[in-house]
Simulated scan of single mutants.
Amino acid sequence: MKEIKSFEEWLETVKLKRKLLLFVKTDNCSVCVGLYPQVKALETVYRLPFYIVNVAEVPEIAGQLSLFTAPVVLLFHEGKEYARFARFVSMEGLKRRLEEIQ
């Protein structure tokens, strides 16, 4: 997973990539730590770029994407949010949505 380091970098990424997955985490989040390896493992299965951002380091992204918890997994297609999974992410649901945009 490539790391997003600034809100400007995020805007450029979502503009350039036709489809992508964004994993949103924050500091001191045990659910984030547990979910990350499961989501990262999907990166080898699906042909779209995976990104990660820590909202403690890039707080603007939380406000602009209306993120109120962590972790959040967002799928983007054609520059728009396609699906959102927050806090307790259903891996089966995530896989199903990934298949839809594959």
Score class of each variant (00 low, 15 high):
V58Q: 09
R87H: 06
R84Q: 08
I52M: 11
I52A: 13
R97V: 03
K25M: 11
I52P: 05
K80Y: 12
V55E: 00
Q38W: 04
E8A: 15
L75S: 00
A62M: 06
E99R: 14
V89S: 00
E3I: 02
L48W: 07
M91L: 15
I52W: 01
E8V: 08
M91N: 05
F50P: 00
K17I: 12
Y46E: 00
K95L: 02
A41Y: 10
A83P: 10
F88I: 11
C29N: 04
E78F: 13
L20G: 02
V45C: 02
L48K: 07
L75F: 08
K2Y: 14
R84E: 05
V53S: 07
L98P: 00
R18D: 06
A62Y: 01
V89N: 02
E60G: 05
G34T: 08
V58F: 08
A62R: 01
R47H: 07
L21G: 11
P49M: 06
Y46R: 03
L94N: 03
L35E: 10
L75N: 05
D27H: 06
S6E: 00
D27K: 11
R47C: 06
S6T: 10
T13F: 06
K80Q: 12
E12A: 12
I4Y: 05
L21S: 12
T26G: 15
R47T: 06
E99L: 10
P71Y: 11
A56Y: 08
I4V: 11
I101K: 07
F50W: 12
Q64N: 12
V39E: 04
S30Q: 05
L94H: 03
L22A: 06
E100A: 15
R96W: 09
M1L: 10
R18S: 15
W10F: 15
E3M: 03
T44N: 11
L98C: 08
L94P: 07
Y46D: 03
K19I: 08
L20M: 13
V33R: 15
E9Y: 13
K2P: 01
P71A: 11
E99V: 12
T13Y: 05
I4T: 03
T44V: 01
Y46M: 02
L35V: 10
R96Q: 09
K5L: 13
P49G: 02
W10N: 04
E12V: 05
E57H: 13
T13N: 00
L42G: 05
L65D: 00
Q64W: 09
I52L: 13
V73I: 04
L65K: 10
Q102S: 11
V33Y: 15
L98W: 03
K19E: 05
T44P: 00
L16S: 12
R47Q: 13
T69M: 09
Q64V: 04
V24S: 14
L22F: 07
E81T: 08
S66L: 13
F50N: 12
E100I: 15
F23R: 03
I4A: 04
Y82F: 13
T13E: 08
S6W: 00
R97G: 02
L98G: 04
E78W: 09
E57S: 12
M91A: 01
F68S: 11
L65C: 06
K19R: 04
V24L: 14
P71M: 10
